[in-house]
């Protein structure tokens, strides 16, 4: 069984976010970049678990410049077999999805996995787009997956509950907490990763109709107002007059 895991590189959550002078680009100096946690902990590890069970190959793919090779090597160290980097800086999820699906169409994947969202843009956009480009079913927010032959049974999170469904391979899924348990790469994994293939694929820039106007930092909070510990009147006033919940 062959798996494709789409991976992205994001600033660590604890990063302080600032932008270049034109407000259109993230200032990258001093930031620590990581493999997007949902891609790593859930999508990638699930693909590796399935490969361990059924045999096959786990490929990872990333669309972006060479800065991402560190996190791609990490994916190989965790257990992916081969990595592919589409060498272009995308401006939109549409472009990312187009490059990934063009690549995936040249192979025969049984399952394409990605994290439920990236922790930078929190878009949750790419999975549905890849599925549409490839005309495949898409199941988002999966927290459980069992495969039996060509049939998959999936549990997913929905607002206020869960849903279980059945679908035939191949399909695209986005991975949420619960789908797999994080794996820490060991020394052997890290050594092996250096010898695994990391192919760079040149493509033409597609462009998109989406235009980033600017980024903006939120206004600074005016600061917390501390209330005396027994001042229930003040709290009641806030709940009643400001929040209007009572």
């Amino acid at each position: 069984m062959n798996f494709l895991v789409c991976i992205s590189r994001t600033p660590d959550t604890t990063s302080k976010i600032t932008f270049e002078a034109d407000s259109r680009k993230l200032k990258e100096d001093g930031l620590v970049f990581i493999l997007n946690p949902y891609d790593e902990w859930y999508a990638l590890v699930k693909a590796i678990e399935l490969k361990e069970k059924f045999g096959g190959q786990v490929d990872v793919i990333h669309v972006g410049n060479s800065n991402a090779e560190v996190v791609m090597r990490k994916a190989l160290a965790i257990g992916a077999d081969a990595a592919f980097r589409i060498d272009i800086e995308p401006d939109s999820s549409w472009e990312v999805a187009k490059y990934i699906s063009d690549f995936a169409k040249t192979k025969a994947y049984d399952l394409i996995l990605l994290g439920k969202e990236t922790i930078d843009h929190n878009g949750s956009e790419t999975g549905a787009m890849v599925a549409e480009f490839m005309d495949l079913p898409y199941i988002s927010y999966c927290n459980k997956l069992d495969i039996d032959g060509t049939k998959a049974t999936i549990a997913r999170e929905i607002e206020g509950g869960t849903e279980t469904s059945e679908v035939n391979l191949p399909f695209v899924l986005s991975a949420a907490k619960g789908l797999a348990e994080q794996r820490i790469p060991n020394m052997k994994g890290i050594m092996d990763a250096k010898k695994k293939p990391l192919d760079i694929i040149a493509v033409d820039k597609l462009g998109s109709d989406l235009e980033l106007v600017r980024f903006e930092l939120p206004p600074v909070k005016s600061g917390v107002k501390m209330l005396a510990v027994d001042d229930m009147d003040a709290l009641i006033k806030i709940l009643h007059e400001e929040a209007k919940v009572i």
Binding site: I119, E211, R214
Partner: peptide, 11 residues
């Protein structure tokens, strides 16, 4: 964007 640490404007 960035887990609530910034806003992005698109057109």
């Amino acid at each position: 964007v960035y887990s609530g640490k910034a806003s992005a404007y698109y057109t």
